[in-house]
Design a protein around this nucleic acid. Sequence first.
DNA 1: ATTAGTGCAAAGGATTTGCATAAAG
DNA 2: CTTTATGCAAATCCTTTGCACTAAT
Lengths: 141, 141
Amino acid sequence: MAIKPSCLSPHQIEAVLKRSGINPTAQRIAICRFVLCDAEHPSAEDVKVWVDQNFPKMSLATVYNTLKILVEAGLLRELRLPHSEAVLYDNNLNAHYHFLDEETGELLDVDPVDVRLEPALSEAYQIHSVEVLLRGTRNPA
Amino acid sequence: MAIKPSCLSPHQIEAVLKRSGINPTAQRIAICRFVLCDAEHPSAEDVKVWVDQNFPKMSLATVYNTLKILVEAGLLRELRLPHSEAVLYDNNLNAHYHFLDEETGELLDVDPVDVRLEPALSEAYQIHSVEVLLRGTRNPA
DNA sequence: ATTAGTGCAAAGGATTTGCATAAAG
DNA sequence: CTTTATGCAAATCCTTTGCACTAAT
């Protein structure tokens, strides 16, 4: 429903990191390969699992450090959702909402256009941002 | 913007608990006095602070146990919001959304009517519930 | 040499758990 | 007596921190 950023090559990742003022170490590039591309709302633990298979010996602290750096650089967004204890990381930088499939646990991006939300609060309220979580199920096509 | 449940007397609380199949112990009634009435989205820690002044010697475990029981009984709802590590407890049982005042940290209830949200997803998506968090600031009247 | 980045293990906060004691019927 | 609730401390989960070590200028 929303457009996912297309995958980046390691070379492109390096460029992205540099452009954001982040020193593109091997560890950081590795994490980005997962977290900026393939991953779908991974937790730090998910990242660690991937990393263990693709970049042995990386420490959990480095995973957390890198994720924090990426968030601070605006390349990733933190997602704290009610159904999960852990923080999830979102590589979709477009404004969007989320749909949680309660049967599968899948978390899908939702285009705000499809939600038609028009706050009509008193003028005393100035809204800076809106977060929406839809919970439900999907029919098999 | 939304109607808060009116406060209950200890006697009424006892009745409410019994009706929900909860043994109305002194500790539980005490917690309910705060959490079903005066409290505004308290965390377990907030509850503990209140309890320490109004029911000395109650253990933190009892606070957590009781909150869990109240949630399971449907007398309270859990609220996990992005701005707070801790779970907050909501005694407003009506469907509602939230507004977070980013200046004061205050969390206000918002009537869904004031948000005008009409999801228009494909029919494959069946929505069971909607959570909305508005972030912003309020003008001084 | 200096600086930045990494790994490891310990610490931290929020919540849960296990178990012995206390309260209630 | 028997059951249930409570208190306390230890354990757990996720995340951060401190610090020594390595890598790269």
